[in-house]
């Protein structure tokens, strides 16, 4: 679940799945409303599914609509795998895993 260390830095722990999306949606939106820049740290996500990914998309779209910045950082392996599979990493525009970084940087920067 989400662990608010700072208001603008949410660490998501455990599942980012259908079981947690309802709760996380409020957290994400709350974070976006009170901050101009929100960082979602996904390094502690143990499991992510389509519903979780969809929620991230929504958060990103909301940020764009609100003219704010959403950063997704510290992708855990399961998150990285799903972003890769979905082909949505470009949509999020966040630097991915360290190992891929050099390669991705070339593409993204």
């Amino acid at each position: 679940m989400a662990n608010e260390q700072q208001n603008n830095h949410l660490v998501i722990e455990g599942e980012l799945t259908i079981y947690t999306v309802t709760e996380l949606k409020d957290k994400f939106l709350g974070g976006l409303l009170t901050n101009d820049e929100l960082e979602l740290n996904l390094s502690e996500v143990s499991e992510i599914d389509g519903a979780g990914l969809q929620l991230l998309v929504m958060a990103k779209q909301s940020a764009i609509a609100l003219n704010k910045t959403l950063l997704i950082t510290g992708h855990s392996p399961v998150v990285a795998e799903l972003l890769d599979l979905s082909g949505l990493s470009v949509f999020f525009g966040d630097p991915l895993l360290m190992v891929h970084q050099s390669k991705l940087k070339g593409e993204l920067l």
Partner: peptide
């Protein structure tokens, strides 16, 4: 090649996170 279609995800206020 796979393209994930996210076009129909509604705006935050209308989106039910449990719906696909």
């Amino acid at each position: 090649q796979l393209v994930t279609i996210i076009d129909t995800i509604p705006s935050a206020d209308k989106m039910d996170p449990e719906s696909c």
